[in-house]
Computed example of a mutant assay.
Amino acid sequence: MPVPHPNGEYAITTMYSVPDDAWYLELDLVAKQRNLVTAIVPDEDPAREPTVCFNPRGEHLDVPYEVMRWFMDQVEEEIRNSRAWMRLRPELVEVIHQLRQEHLGAIGDDDFPQVLAEVSAAVPEADLPAVLAAAFGRKPDGTTVDHTPAIRPADDQAAGT
């Protein structure tokens, strides 16, 4: 369902593309049912960066600054939500990426104890909650995480702050 801008003339539609492993946010001009800008936010591969694309076949339209700022704020929030785990230390990012690829981001209750044991052997205990939340949306006790865990950038973690 599109999220309308407060002026009602623009809206953002968000959708997930499974083949691209990415979130797509589209800024549309509502009256003309026309896509103006698309932001692509990959959420599986840390090597892929988010991008913004303008419709090359469309006529030139002036988009008010406040609308573009609103759109980019929504894109920034999606990046923060989808890619927070990528700001962990590089060795943890690699473990999470491998787990997400191997298990496609989900794991059954029956398989969780085995995977928990493997992950516990591979990462420090203090990092276990962040790794499990990012890889499977779970806590070490197996329950689901209801939100993205607080993840500090790798520089802050290395400094111990």
Rank of each mutant, 00 (worst) to 15 (best):
E91H: 03
L92C: 15
V93M: 03
E94K: 07
V95A: 01
V95C: 00
V95W: 06
V95P: 10
V95I: 15
V95F: 04
V95D: 05
H97R: 13
L99D: 02
Q101T: 12
Q101V: 14
Q101L: 10
E102I: 13
H103I: 01
G105R: 04
A106Q: 09
I107C: 01
I107Y: 01
D109N: 14
D109P: 05
D109A: 08
D110K: 15
D110N: 07
D111H: 11
D111W: 05
D111Y: 03
F112T: 11
P113K: 04
Q114S: 13
L116G: 06
L116R: 10
L116M: 05
E118H: 15
E118F: 11
S120V: 01
S120T: 08
S120E: 09
A121K: 11
A121G: 13
A121S: 12
A122K: 12
V123P: 10
P124F: 03
P124M: 01
E125S: 10
A126R: 14
A126E: 13
D127E: 11
D127V: 01
P129L: 07
A130S: 14
A130M: 06
A130N: 06
A130P: 03
V131Y: 02
V131I: 12
L132Y: 04
L132R: 03
A133F: 11
A133P: 04
A134C: 12
A134I: 07
A134K: 08
A134T: 10
A134R: 05
A135I: 09
F136E: 03
F136D: 03
F136A: 02
G137T: 10
R138M: 06
R138P: 02
R138N: 11
K139L: 06
K139T: 02
D141A: 13
T144S: 06
D146I: 11
H147E: 12
